[in-house]
Amino acid sequence: MTALPNQLPSESLLDQIADALAGPGFIIIDQPLPVSLINGLIDNLLAQQAEFKPAGVGRQGDYQRNQDIRGDAIQWLEPGDLAVTEFLRWMDKLRLGINQRLFLGLFDYECHYAVYAPGAFYQKHRDAFRGSPGRKLSTVLYLNPEWDLVAGGELVLYDEAGEEQLVRLAPECGKLVLFLSEDFPHEVLPATQSRQSIAGWFRIKPA
């Protein structure tokens, strides 16, 4: 694979993201990453699919697999592959830019590929509970070329009470979603075709 273009998030994009997080608390950005980087991530995902494992729910001692709650298969991202390394560098630039503007204290980023087979879903949940250390800002980057809008598979963001739908987003390739992890219950609806993404979380240190 040839070298990827060095295209980190611009200052204007960082301003836009910070303003949205300080306001409604979420933002949807259309194609913020270079197409060549998206394509490299798709190639890397496809090359590893035989190694994916069924995802679980809960953390550490509470961890369990339950396909009645979530049905995706995952593979955590680590530096090494060129596209993955560039993506993680892009996200670290984003982390630094958000910290400079909002003083959130984001100190690292973890992420995994997520592949949902046709019919698989993830029930409504939160990525973090208010006041707990750990995940502060959630991200989803979609990797679905030529997604058919009638196929389903939308991400639904709810208000903090979990009652009103705020966003219903089709998983179109290249779209990036960011939202405050504590504030937005969300779910992944089933689709009639396989769908894939990178789910990630910027974390804060325990007090």
Rank of each mutant, 00 (worst) to 15 (best):
C173M: 09
A128G: 06
R168K: 15
A47M: 08
G134I: 08
P5C: 11
A83F: 09
G162S: 06
E160L: 03
K53Y: 14
G134H: 09
K124N: 03
P5K: 05
F26C: 07
E110H: 00
L137P: 02
C111P: 02
L96Y: 08
N99L: 08
Q75A: 15
G200N: 03
Q16P: 00
F87Y: 15
F26V: 03
E110C: 00
A170V: 05
R65E: 15
P79M: 03
G71N: 04
L14G: 03
L102E: 06
K175H: 10
F87Q: 03
Y116L: 07
S132E: 15
P118I: 05
C173N: 12
G153P: 05
N44V: 03
P185D: 05
Q31C: 09
N99S: 04
D30S: 13
D15R: 07
Y63A: 13
D159Y: 09
R168H: 12
E78S: 13
Q49I: 14
E86M: 13
L169G: 04
L102S: 00
N66E: 05
E164R: 13
H125F: 02
I204S: 12
S197D: 08
E160W: 10
Y113C: 05
Q67P: 06
L102N: 06
E182C: 10
E187R: 00
Y142C: 04
Y116R: 00
D108H: 12
T192I: 00
G131Q: 05
P171Y: 04
Y109R: 00
V150L: 13
A22D: 14
E51K: 13
H125R: 01
S132C: 11
F121E: 06
L149R: 06
R135W: 09
I98E: 09
L178W: 10
I74R: 12
P206I: 13
R130N: 06
K136E: 15
D81G: 01
I38E: 10
L8R: 01
P24N: 14
I29N: 00
G152V: 02
R130A: 13
G80C: 07
S36K: 07
P24M: 09
L13I: 14
